[in-house]
Nucleic acid binder design. Structure first.
Lengths: 250, 250
DNA sequence: GCAAGGTTTTGAACGCGTTCGAAACCAGCG
DNA sequence: CGCTGGTTTCGAACGCGTTCAAAACCTTGC
């Protein structure tokens, strides 16, 4: 079995990142701008942070900021990439000693909530961006979104490191990582709208929903469910995976 | 049984609509601006249509447009309300003679696709707005969103007009309309990202997924599934409905 | 050392959404 | 009729994201 790349240290960029860094100094400027932006986003929120402020605070001109990030949106991207990378690392650590699938899944999701917690306030922006099919930042429409690849790889580990995986239909094991990633997206959706302190409600949602999900997957092994599992697999293969950029495996 | 209000003719407005119309002339101006905006949105798309253009085309000043719609966003709202209303009317007509649940559900969803078809190009905007938890336009976060009430009422009819409803657990019948509305939201999500001509892919998705959904609901009647159905009901009651503005029924 | 060509940086300028103080309009009342 | 208080309309002005032509800087080859 091939281990997919788990995501490079968050330096890579999409179209918005302009030409690849030619010099060290250039790379430094780029990093400086991103750091500054991230700090200001956290301090004042996304809308309130103006490009002029970022440039001023970083000690460069606005034009220069745009030289590295062709739109304000693309500053989000850097941020999001890094978070995904941190999440995967943290989740791997936390679930290292656990073999139970439901537990592993819950650990992975809770780890996401913890990693994302500091950014909950302006997470709405991430989400708005993700929801725009015209934006190349959207993890749904952009087939080569590095953050998605990283996350899907993580969920593959969640599954394959569990005692459940060997008992399952191989085809299903192939599909599940993407489905679990979608599950995370649902949790994220819930989280974004969650206004309870420490997003306690989302945490409870995760606690309650993971066992149900695990149970459902487990049930798929029994004969009675063959037909409905076949249908579900068909739906996923034909309609979900192609949309998020996997070509259907024949 | 009580028939919920199916949505007033799309005149009502949320906070962005400013004070209620005092005079006929005022109401006329308001309508003129909305009509003009909708026409231009369709002609050139949302981003390309500037407030200045809307005002000019409508023969009023920008300031005046803002007097009636406190932000460009709120013009979307009028649009969306009307579409939802049209959809409900059309779907009712189409499914009048059908009792089979799966068929009724498919009719309702296809009707939505047909109603929304002319606006597919700039639908991304609706969606972005809906995805913003801070916006009062979001059908998720805004508890009294008229469009959602209309749509949920429609799905209640989809279910209760079918031969399936009487056979189901009463509690489940109470929950399902909202779940079906969520199903529509998923379809909308899919549709927004769908780039195939005439959104053929989404249409196929609907054709394929409605029977599966119907089958799942139907299965819930059998004894074997009691525990998992109970779990699912719990999740919906405790985590989904409260979020979209229903107080849990004790 | 210098010219050529690329990379990086600059800041003024543009277009847009939005705001706001003031004008115009329109009752109803004395 | 004129005054008064509310409603409606106006358009200049503000702040922000973004663009762009030109400048500054930095190699590299001669």
């Amino acid at each position: 079995m091939d281990v997919p790349e788990t995501g490079a240290p968050p330096t890579s960029e999409l179209p918005g990142g302009r030409a690849q860094p030619k010099t060290d100094k250039s790379e430094a400027t780029r990093a400086l701008i991103l750091e500054t932006a991230m700090r200001l986003f956290q301090e004042r929120g996304y809308e309130k942070t103006t490009m002029r402020a970022i440039a001023a605070e970083a000690g460069v001109s606005v034009g220069n900021a745009y030289y590295y990030f062709s739109a304000k949106e693309f500053l989000i991207q850097g941020f999001y990439d890094r978070m995904t990378y941190d999440h995967a690392a943290d989740a791997r650590l936390r679930m290292a000693g656990t073999r139970d699938f439901a537990e592993r899944l819950e650990i992975a999701l809770v780890s996401w909530l913890d990693t994302a917690a500091p950014y909950h306030e302006f997470s709405a922006q991430f989400f708005r961006t993700a929801a725009d099919p015209n934006s190349s930042l959207s993890p749904f429409s952009n087939e080569s979104h590095p953050a998605r690849a990283t996350a899907v790889a993580l969920f593959r580990e969640v599954l394959e490191g569990s005692e459940l995986a060997p008992k399952l239909d191989a085809e299903l094991v192939e599909l599940l990582p993407d489905v679990l990633w979608l599950h995370l997206m649902v949790v994220v959706l819930y989280w974004v709208f969650d206004r309870t302190p420490d997003t306690e409600r989302t945490r409870e949602f995760v606690r309650r929903s993971t066992p149900v999900a695990a149970r459902l997957i487990n049930l798929s092994r029994y004969r009675v469910f063959r037909p409905i599992v076949r249908d579900a697999k068909g739906l996923i293969q034909d309609f979900i995976l192609p949309t998020i950029g996997k070509t259907a495996v024949k």
